[in-house]
Write a protein that binds this DNA or RNA. Structure first.
Length: 496
RNA sequence: GGUCCUGUGGCCGAGUGGCUAGGCAAAGCUCUGCAAAAGCUUCUACACCAGUUCGAAUCUGGUCGGGACCUCCA
């Protein structure tokens, strides 16, 4: 089984093979911690989390680098040269690094809620000013950077003469060079298409560092080039991020790294699509973001209820990472129910037992299960088709439930098939998809109390004292615990 | 304006030219003290118009609609 990934750089689905056998280097553009993360931010981090998990499952040792952009870059190039982070800091009367810390903590907390694996290295832009400066110096030395009034720009026209600037984003270099935008500071650049490597800091700028060109701060794109190179080398396997970063961020990153390292940085570029609200991308400019804290608590006008982080994770897994997904409360509700149903089937499955060495009486069903299970890996190998794996799981759910309800005979499938099924569910649901139960961890004490209540209720039912049995069931329901009377007299319960 | 993506049933969403996606919702049945859950069954599709093909949701062209990027952006 071999993995195929869609490479945005070549626009083709390619066979994946890592540069160093057995190892994968993956860089993902992390958050800008100048504000609270919103639902849109959840997508890349959940996407690359299952990418990371699947690669690990395939046996690769993955070094996953995801940066924290805490240096802030200007809002609008050239116009006011205002540092994003420091601008907000002034408004909130906070020390910039205090703000950075606050939102970094919040981001980490959200990642924990989503059960995202921590990256191997999480470098910060402010911690790598030295590396960025030396990279800029090298770009100047190579003849592709020039200094004007304490700022340094990348010479796109010169680069484009010998390199394919615009390949990743499908941009046409001549159009970029001709694009006219009347912005202050533009006259510093030799060409409109040039981008900043270093910006001279205005006096009111709080975040500033000394450099060979005077006090200033790094351009947006250089941090990723510097940190990716430092931790993953001149050429690494995967570079990921949101589609909206293709231009100018990733395009510029390629240019910088190519000049410094004499090699294109990443072998495979993977981009996730956007989350939209009413068909519009969630973003600052549209003023339509739903913050993650609002998602979890349900405190946003567009939400009808709070949504569990796992519901959001599942919602994202239900569609392909390269398709846009439109947010709606209804869609999330559907996901919540679906996840609950799937997880209950998974719980049922783990409790099923068959005698060792049992042969399948229903060979057709047995074969069907094996096929559905084997497709898990095939689908994931095909550019991470998480939605298809989930569809197969939902096809297996009724079979699992039927085994519990004895609609399917206990001798129908072989013990090896059952074990295969159990392992596959555990591996994919928990290890690869990183999903967890909506009801949280098991509590032995609660378990004991519930067993007691179930016993009492059973006694009442035997005496046909339905008033008591219904009271127990209803009262429990009102505090969020559901009791289910199953076929064979067993009683199960679940935390809603 | 330029570049690119996209248009699937009540809703969300997979879709490799021919073979059921799946989920949610809805309806019926089975089970059940009642319920819930579960199981079985059913329903509503491929924006429009041409073309290629024995055959197209899937390929090509056009029309209309939606979106992304071109500026910070996940």
């Amino acid at each position: 089984m071999s993995l195929k990934v869609y490479n945005s750089y070549t626009r083709e689905k390619e066979q994946f093979s890592s540069i160093t056998p057995g190892h994968v280097g993956m860089y993902v553009c992390g958050p800008t911690v100048s504000g609270e993360s919103h639902l849109g931010h959840a997508r890349p981090y959940i996407t690359f989390d299952f990418v990371y998990r699947f690669l690990t499952h395939k046996g690769y040792k993955v070094r996953y680098v995801r940066n924290i952009t805490d240096a802030g870059h200007f809002e609008e190039e050239g116009r006011e040269a205002e540092d994003k982070v420091s601008k907000k800091a002034l408004l909130e009367k906070l020390e910039p690094m205090e703000l950075v810390q606050k939102y970094t903590n919040l981001f980490h907390w959200a990642m924990l809620q989503f059960n995202c694996v921590e990256p191997s290295i999480e470098p910060t832009a402010t911690g790598h000013i030295v590396e960025q400066i030396s990279m800029i110096q090298q770009i100047i030395a190579e003849g592709y950077g020039y200094e004007v009034n304490g700022s340094v720009y990348f010479d796109v026209k010169k680069y484009a003469a010998t390199h394919d600037y615009g390949k990743l984003s499908g941009r046409i270099i001549d159009d970029l060079l001709e694009t006219t935008r009347e912005l202050d500071g533009q006259e510093e650049k030799r060409d409109k298409a040039d981008f900043a490597l270093w910006k001279s800091a205005a006096p009111e700028h709080i975040m500033r560092w000394k450099s060979p060109w005077g006090e200033g701060y790094p351009g947006w794109h250089i941090e990723c080039s510097a940190m990716a190179t430092k931790y993953l080398g001149a050429e690494f396997d995967i570079h990921g991020g949101g589609m909206d970063l293709q231009f100018p961020h990733h395009e510029s990153e390629i240019a910088q790294s190519t000049i410094c390292n004499h090699h294109t940085p990443a072998k495979y570029w993977i981009h996730n699509n956007m989350i939209t609200v009413n068909g519009r991308k969630m973003g600052k400019s549209y003023n339509n973001q739903i913050k993650l804290t609002e998602m979890f608590t349900g405190t946003h006008p567009l939400l009808t209820q709070p949504f569990h982080p796992m519901t959001i994770r599942f919602f994202i897994l239900q569609s392909h990472y390269r398709s846009p997904i439109d947010f709606s409360s209804e869609a999330l509700q559907a996901s919540e129910k679906a996840l609950k149903r799937l997880w209950e089937a998974y719980d049922v499955l783990q409790k099923l037992e068959l005698p060792e060495g049992q042969q399948a009486a229903d060979t057709e069903l047995d074969a069907k299960i094996i096929e559905l299970v084997q497709q898990f890996e095939e689908f994931m190998d095909d550019d991470f088709s998480t939605a298809k794996v989930l569809a197969n799981m939902f096809e297996l759910a009724p079979i699992i439930n039927s085994m519990r309800d004895k609609h399917v005979g206990p001798d129908a499938i072989s013990s090896t098939t059952l074990n295969l099924l159990k392992n596959a569910f555990k591996t994919y649901l928990e290890d690869v998809f990183g999903l967890q139960s909506l009801s949280g961890a098991h509590d032995d004490k609660l378990d004991g109390v519930m067993q007691l209540l179930i016993e009492i209720r059973k006694g009442a039912k035997t005496k046909k004292d339905y008033a008591t049995s219904d009271k127990i069931r209803n009262e429990l329901a009102s505090i969020g615990i559901a009791i289910k009377d199953e076929k064979d007299g067993n009683v199960s319960w679940s935390n809603l």
